[in-house]
């Protein structure tokens, strides 16, 4: 399973902070995971679609769409950060 986390406005829009997604063969990287999540329709399509500027991390390290993921990883999606 891939442990997927959502933060801040994305968490509110989805109404959830975490879910587990089966790590099947088609989900090899962050971009593919995002597409897989969006393909389920609303509310994911609006909140995670390519029109949304989002950041992602894999195992608590900032990631890119081509960052590889595998079973047991923790992947987070979140809006651009605004600390400081």
């Amino acid at each position: 399973m891939i442990n997927v986390l959502y933060f801040a406005s994305l968490k509110e829009a989805l109404g959830t902070s975490a879910e587990e997604i089966e790590a099947d063969n088609n989900i090899t990287d962050v971009g593919a995971l995002r597409e897989w999540i969006c393909a389920r329709g609303e509310p994911w399509q609006s909140s995670l679609g390519q029109q949304q500027r989002l950041m992602a991390s894999v195992n608590q390290q900032l990631a890119r769409p081509d960052t590889q993921i595998s079973d047991g990883d923790e992947v987070a999606f979140f809006p651009p950060v605004t600390g400081g």
Partner: peptide, 23 residues
């Protein structure tokens, strides 16, 4: 780097309610 890479998010609350600060 902290402002653009560290995972913090600000939400402002006013009379009108809460809203997330945009990067």
């Amino acid at each position: 780097y902290l402002k653009t890479r560290a995972p913090f998010w600000k939400k402002e609350t006013t009379d009108a309610g809460g809203h997330w600060v945009e990067a």
